[in-house]
Amino acid sequence: MHGLYNFVRGPLAWVAFILFVGGTLYRLIAMLVIARKKDNVVFDYFSLFYGLRSIFHWIIPFANRNSRQRPIFTIVTFAFHICLLAAPILLLAHVLLWDESFGISWWTLPEGVADIMTLIVIGGCIYFLWRRLTQPEVKFVTFASDFVILAIVAAPFITGFLAYHQWLGYKFWLILHILAGEVMLVAIPFTRLAHMIYSPFTRAYMGSEFGSVRHARDW
């Protein structure tokens, strides 16, 4: 077990983080290069003020019409995304690993809170799965890859939850948890999870067009 654990926690973690950071940079740079080459207008119309104004209206729940029209979805998706980001980054056990490896540490969430946040993420995944399976407008545009992506996101949280509670097969779930987390990190730049990287740009561009050219609101 020492060997396997050390492998997933050591070299494999390095690989995952390098692919995550490298892949993210690659996608960003590739986007900018192709924009410069073939879509130069996006730079001409880009406006920091209107871009931020638009982002502002879409990262605050109920600050735009669509989110007010769908209160349940809005609550779920905001809770899901906040927990998805905050729980792993501010998790005590994760920060201890950063501290152990690099001597850096930061404020952490109480473990009970992180536990609930994990459940919120899992609940969010179940809600999204339910939408994909039952809502016609979502079902129609759902591909097998959408389920895979959902599974990639759910896996680290489910395994992390099981490992944290140590009910059965602690080390098995722990190693699976680390692997699942690494898969997710690598998947971010190379799947539609790339919306994490791209969405601020698409939002800001739409905000720029609406703000400085159209003089209209886009929320």
Partner: peptide, 21 residues
């Protein structure tokens, strides 16, 4: 953990030293 790692024996993960139950 450093000792356990060197000797390749003994717990090195959270739950092994801090078992919940």
């Amino acid at each position: 953990k450093s000792c356990h790692q060197t000797k390749k024996v003994g717990p090195i993960t959270c739950g092994e030293c801090h078992p919940r139950k």
